[in-house]
């Protein structure tokens, strides 16, 4: 067996295969539910109901999707340039950290000024966090997969140290958490009374901005050129190193915004469980979206829905929430396979 490229994949191929992948994911979920001793259709229904079945469920899914849109965009932007940023988790925490440092009373400004200042700080923090690995890559050829991945653990330990030490909330009854943001630093809710904050709106705006950047600006063109063929880009005079650094700043900044949005929109303070792996899940989100910034919105909603739905299903049906992880993993693997098969066909002999 070998692969032959498909010259011109038709619509049936480009849409049908991903649809099949999605169907396969559902089938796997049902098989797992059966193994766990439940009615597969009921489990599926409960996941769906838990994700979008009520106003509360839907808002919870949107809230959960918000950081995933940011980290998904961060990964999508970087991967376009073949800058393998696995460190969105660390960049997220750095963004949250700076927002908390400045937003807990250090800077006294009215809300309309304070929020942009904190956003800028979070973007800068996330960007700087990726700048080091990007320089090591362009100057010394150090593999950024290793550096960004390891920085995640470094960053978690730094945050842990700060929360146990200088940043520990004196009123926190001994829990490792920071002081709360001042009220002016908090992101308002989109609709009063409903648990959905403006971080979601900000994430949508960022997705559109990144899409515009990629399709309409010379920077987006440079990023795509560098990602697709570094050699040809350099030959044509595209400053490859500068482009990689710019990409790193944008990617890190977006991940930093995720941290700001979680702290200012949802949690109010920095804790060690601020992110249950949003940085890593961002990679799945970006890959499922085929690195398309607008697709990131859709795939983030899909991934968030599965998480929220599985949580709720687990309480009702007693099937473990691990089913959500397996679902996402199989969705990703099947999708990658489907994408490969849109471009190549398998031939015998």
């Amino acid at each position: 067996m070998r692969l032959e490229p498909v010259a011109d994949p038709g619509w049936t191929r480009t849409l049908g295969l991903p649809a099949l992948a999605l169907g396969g994911t559902v089938a796997i979920a049902m098989a797992l539910a059966l193994i766990a001793g439940s009615n597969p259709l009921a489990v599926l229904g409960l996941i769906l109901k838990g994700a979008v079945g009520s106003k509360f469920a839907l808002l919870e899914t949107l809230n959960r999707a918000t950081p995933l849109i940011f980290t998904g965009l961060a990964v999508a932007v970087a991967f376009r340039a073949k800058l393998w940023n696995i460190g969105a988790e660390a960049q997220l925490y750095m963004g949250a950290l700076l927002a908390v440092v400045l937003g807990t009373g250090a800077v006294a400004l009215p809300s309309v000024l304070l929020i942009p200042v904190l956003m800028a700080a979070a973007i800068t923090g996330g960007a700087l966090m990726l700048l080091g690995p990007a320089f090591l890559k362009t100057r010394l050829g150090v593999d950024e997969v290793v550096t960004t991945l390891l920085l995640n653990f470094v960053m978690i330990l730094v945050v842990s140290m700060l929360l146990e030490g200088p940043m520990k909330d004196p009123m926190g009854m001994g829990w490792p958490k920071s002081e709360r943001l001042v009220p002016d630093a908090r992101l308002p809710r989109i609709v009063t009374g409903l648990r959905l904050h403006w971080g979601f709106g900000l994430a949508l705006i960022c997705a559109v901005l990144v899409w515009v950047m990629q399709t309409r600006t010379t920077l987006g063109y440079e990023i795509r050129a560098v990602g697709l063929n570094r050699r040809a880009a350099a030959f044509a005079g595209i400053p490859v190193t500068v482009v990689v650094i710019k990409t790193a700043l944008i990617s890190g900044g977006l991940a930093g915004l995720a941290g700001f949005s979680e702290v200012a929109g949802l949690k109010g303070s920095l804790t060690l469980d601020l992110s249950p792996g949003f940085g890593y899940t961002g990679i799945i989100v970006a890959m499922l979206a085929l690195l398309n910034p607008l697709g990131v919105i859709v795939s983030a909603l899909f991934v968030a829905g599965i998480f929220v739905g599985a949580d709720s299903m687990s309480r009702a049906a007693g099937v473990p929430t691990y089913i959500a992880d397996i679902l996402l993993a199989s969705a990703l693997l099947l999708m990658v396979l489907a994408i490969m098969l849109t471009r190549f066909r398998v031939v015998r002999g």
Binding site: R231, A232, F235
Partner: peptide, 9 residues
Amino acid sequence: HRTGTISDF
């Protein structure tokens, strides 16, 4: 193929 053009452009 590799220097003169970007195949997926």
